[in-house]
Amino acid sequence: MSNEPRDAISGSTDPQTKTREARIGPDLDNRFNSKLREAFGSSPFILTKFDKFMNWVRGSSMFMLQFGIACCSIEMMHTYAVKHDLDRFGSGVPRASPRQADVMIVPGTIVSKFAPRMKRVYDQMPEPKFVVNMGSCAISGGPFQEGYNVIKGAEEVIPVDIHVPGCPPRPEALVYGVVKLQERIANGESSPVTVKPYELEQFGDLEQDELVDKLAAEIDEEDLVMRYNWADSP
């Protein structure tokens, strides 16, 4: 690596560089001259909206939740690891705790037993939070869509920002999806939080029907439950 800035930049910003150098004095090591600094030129400040700046910061430094579900999580590990190295894009360090994470990649099939847990993990993440759906299963149930136990996509349970199709998507595709998410975040976009078909509800709040009556002996009124109306699933 050369210590010199590229010609195209140093040439074009030559006048500003001179002004800047006059300001900061002669002793500063050239390596401290980042491209950003070059771009700013002589004025060491920029004018922008605070929100915009925060969005830019948010998109440029994201902590992923270390969240492995199924096959896609193997490709997700490859995306984090050498060769693909998601960290290059400022979003690579997986955090084991949802409380430290901004982005959840959903890499696999969601089944009835897991959906309440996934919802809880999502709820535990601090705002603002974003979700990338990785692979066909998380998008729609994928090859297992017809299964008696399979949720037809993570979007039935939590809001999703980006869908990366594939079975499984290649690491390159996931990188692309994450970069697209960063773009959206930098533009201040995220998917709306709406009521989903499957929510955690208190058992006592459910409408009375045959199933609820049958389970009344096993489940407390205050217990949280998720009710699956399979017949209404898309």
Partner: peptide, 26 residues
Amino acid sequence: LLPETWQGHPLANDYHQDRPQLVPFQ
């Protein structure tokens, strides 16, 4: 494999896949 509160046995002949199910989070 299935939650404790599951209704029916899915690989049995009379299983209806469209029946609603409840999964508690206890």
